[in-house]
Design a protein around this nucleic acid. Structure first.
Lengths: 340, 340
DNA sequence: TTGAAAGCGCTACCAC
DNA sequence: GTGGTAGCGCTTTCAA
């Protein structure tokens, strides 16, 4: 009686077998009504809690999943996580957060956690798989994996994402519609497919409008604020600076706006800026940011549902799930100036 | 050989006992050098990973901790989490995130997770303990608990926090120094000690400066953006509106600034605003927010270190650990107008 | 409908 | 140093 009660303690107290107690408490087995309520009653009275390690060992499941992101410091993931957590909770799962910081070693580490029983499945929000998985004789497609936000080319894994190209195209079309002709783009890290898609969307929209795409108008960034700021400075120093900048994410857009202001330029009076992601506070900065909004919580929920199917061994559609985006037209975009 | 290898498989392959393999792999026991490297080699070759459930069951530890916050959607916690995670990783622990959403039921749930072996300890960043713990015969002080950011009065738990009162006082003193005399305050939820301390810091600074504190200058908020906006509107409509507003957190400060702008008032030309927390993007909004910066990552690290001590059964100082804050004077505060 | 008992995979005790 | 082995607490056959 010292310490927490075990199933055995309940069984002894009630004069039944541990097996019966287990069945009653898990709700699976058939247990006669009087016994059932007696056991439940006793469990509550004794403040019983099943030991998860023992249960997990026996059932070979951990009832938790891993959500792995590039940078846990990025608030963008928060709402996605909320969606994941919600769907997970409903299914009785816990969510473990993994942070790779784009460190390959840590990516591998999370794959290890899958193998050692820490988690039953994993939602990857990183753009790539750790190297050396094949070498280790591990077939990706056999692992309970789901990819969200990003795309891992050729992996054949279930995906949940948005149509990055179409969304970027629409955003740039909005600028074109405002009369802008000199529209620049700050890209994300181009090795990644997501950055390339957004860039291609920008190019496509420019092409649609019959506009030139000077090489200098495509500046390569890394999604961070500082790069938005620095690249914007480069654009401003061009002989023919752009009148509008489409940024591959909101952070870079903030950085760009910061730099424009620093130079005494008005947004959107002199230069229009469009972001991507609609992160926390985008709506609240001044002027509020025009940006592409992703259904973040939805993405999280969908990814978790998909993962539950994978874990459950169900067949999962090969087609990626594509969720709709919305262009939020707010205060950082306006008509092109007469000089544009 | 089908499926993942067990310790037994390695043992058989090498003709040693499972006990030796376990000792070699955990690094604890004394194992002779030749055996040691043979085992390590075989483990790597066979791609062995220990089963955590089995290990946890046996060792009665989970090697993970729970970090419980009020609202996982609040970016403020991100950097704290980073600190926690870092310290945890160094000690070989994983971090589980808990989100109470101020729901008492969920608070209890996380305490349950402590009991069922999900975690070895818990860092509370919520302002209170769930009700009914005593009723359940659980002595708080026996639980491996640490409180960070917040304060749980009379709990006798180890704490890591900042000096909220002094920090608030300093922030308001800064406004006084700029010549402001009509300084209002948007509070957090006042049942909570942290909100009260910040409020008291404001009052103290006003008192220090011999300034009046009209009742209407203390507006009660809830840390959310909307409340900052709404309460700021009330202040603006006062017969004698304030020339400066000290907000109990940055989100409310953003809301207030938003409202001031909406009314065509200039920040800081017409009204100065000070926040608290120095959240993500505070530096980047325009003008950048003057605010009290907390050493978030430090707080997380310190809390985790403290928790490790508690888990390890060490004596922990009864005195709370108080980390220093810094007033970041940026763009939203300026001299009081001549009318002020 | 219930009980007996095996065993999930590991660690740690006790021998040698 | 190493091996044998008990057992962590639970679920789940198999029998009754």
């Amino acid at each position: 009686m010292n310490g927490r009660p075990r199933i055995k303690d309940i069984a002894q107290r009630l004069g039944v077998s541990p097996a019966t107690v287990s069945r009653a408490l898990t709700g699976t087995g058939l247990v006669a009504e009087p016994t059932l309520s007696r056991i439940r009653e006793a469990a509550r009275a004794m403040n019983y809690r099943p030991n998860v390690s023992a249960r997990n060992l026996r059932t070979r499941r951990s009832m938790s999943v891993l959500m792995v992101v590039r940078d846990i410091g990025n608030p963008f993931y928060l709402e996605v996580m909320k969606g994941v957590e919600q769907a997970a909770r409903e299914a009785g799962y816990s969510v473990l957060m993994g942070n790779t910081e784009s460190n390959p070693e840590r990516e591998t580490e999370y794959f290890d956690m899958l193998r050692d029983g820490h988690a039953d499945g994993m939602i990857l929000m990183t753009g790539k798989l750790p190297a050396g998985l094949d070498a280790a004789g591990i077939a990706i497609s056999d692992l309970p994996l789901v990819v969200a936000l990003e795309t891992i080319e050729g992996s054949g894994l279930p995906h949940v994402r948005i149509d990055n190209l179409a969304a970027a195209r629409e955003a740039v079309r909005h600028l074109v519609g405002l009369g802008h002709r000199r529209i620049a783009h700050l890209t994300g890290p181009l090795p990644e497919i997501m950055s390339r898609l957004r860039r291609d969307g920008w190019r496509a929209a420019m092409h649609d409008a019959g506009l030139a795409v000077p090489e200098a108008y495509e500046q390569r960034g890394d999604y961070l604020l500082r790069s938005g700021q620095a690249l914007c400075a480069i654009l401003c120093d061009l002989p023919e600076p752009p009148t509008a900048i489409f940024c591959a994410n909101d952070e870079m857009a903030f950085g760009a706006i910061h730099e424009l202001r620093r130079r005494g330029l008005d947004v959107p009076g002199d230069v229009s800026v469009v972001g991507f992601d609609d992160i926390y506070l985008s709506e609240v900065i001044f002027p509020p940011l025009t940006t592409v909004s992703q259904p973040r919580a939805e993405i999280g929920r969908a990814a978790m549902s998909l993962l539950l199917q994978v874990i459950g061994g169900d067949e999962v559609a090969a087609e990626p799930i594509v969720l709709p985006t919305m262009l939020k037209i707010r205060g950082t975009t306006g008509p092109a100036g007469t000089s544009g």
